[in-house]
């Protein structure tokens, strides 16, 4: 297993993908949060509570939860490129025990996802305080709470990376898998949230669970307020964490077992 993990690390670091991913994390963390903090939520449309309030500060950071499709897409991209370039043949020649290969990949991408999350969270913290200073505002949440929130977001990013790996291993085809991951996480869930009836399931979907984990009620509340339906009640942060853990386990199981019997013709 150790050999497989070393091999997968070498594979991950052999292209510029990891570098591009960390650049994206910086752009979304420092860039996006910095801009939002600089503009100030009171100037959003519709206007939201300002950064000096707890709700406003949580809103600005919680938006990062909606960028989780990005690490998911990187996970999918990396796994499916093995199928696309047929290196999966060589990989399974060297390691015919396919579930072990996928287990090693999950371990490597868990580390990769955490690195992505750490860069996202670290640069977001810089962006938040720098943006607030530039805007001449304070941050309405204590530093410890900001750190806790960003820590949970970082872990959520690792979870989404593994979700992406799982879907990639299941689907195999790179374009199809990327469309599925980005389409569902970026478009599918927000649309689901607006469908009466279907939105009852939203709190238990990955996006809803992430929002619960980050205490991000504003978007779902705002949407519910504009529709003649009842408000969506997110689960508690702890339940949200458990739901995400459940998805991680499902993704891991899918990733490990999906390629077992597939013919590589």
């Amino acid at each position: 297993m150790q050999q497989l993990i070393v091999a997968e690390f070498r594979r991950l670091l052999a292209t510029r993908l990891w570098w591009i991913a960390l650049l994206a994390a910086t752009g979304l963390g420092g860039g996006l949060v910095g801009c939002l903090a600089l503009v100030g939520p009171e100037h959003f449309s519709p206007p939201m509570p300002g950064l000096h309030t707890a709700a406003g500060a949580r809103l600005v950071l919680g938006i990062l939860g909606y960028t989780a499709f990005v690490p998911a897409a990187f996970g999918t991209l990396a796994v499916t490129s093995e199928y696309r370039h047929r290196t999966v043949d060589v990989t399974f020649l060297f390691a015919p025990s396919r579930w072990r290969v996928l287990t090693a990949k999950l371990a490597v991408f868990a580390v990769g996802g955490l690195c992505y999350g750490a860069v996202l969270a670290g640069t977001a913290a810089v962006g938040l305080y720098a943006g607030a200073a530039g805007h001449g505002s304070t941050v309405g949440v204590p530093v410890g709470a900001v750190a806790g929130l960003l820590g949970r977001l970082a872990v959520a990013m690792a979870v989404y990376t593994l979700l992406g790996v799982g879907v990639g291993a299941l689907v195999g085809n790179q374009v199809a898998a990327l469309c599925l991951v980005i389409g569902y996480l970026y478009l599918g869930e927000p649309v689901l949230m607006m469908i009466p009836g279907a939105n009852a399931a939203y709190p238990l979907l990955p996006g809803g669970a992430t929002a619960a984990l980050t205490g991000f009620h504003e978007v779902s509340d705002a949407m519910a307020a504009q529709l003649p339906t009842t408000a969506i009640h997110l689960v508690s942060p702890v339940v949200g964490a458990l739901v995400l853990l459940g998805y991680t386990l499902v993704a891991a199981a899918v990733a490990v077992f999906a390629p077992l019997r597939r013919d590589l013709a």
């Binding site: 050999q3 497989l4 070393v6 091999a7 070498r10 594979r11 052999a14 060589v90 990989t91 060297f94 390691a95």
Partner: peptide, 11 residues
């Protein structure tokens, strides 16, 4: 890089 991936995998 390609060979190093598989050298590691095969030990």
């Amino acid at each position: 890089a390609h060979l190093r991936v598989y050298a590691a995998m095969g030990g």
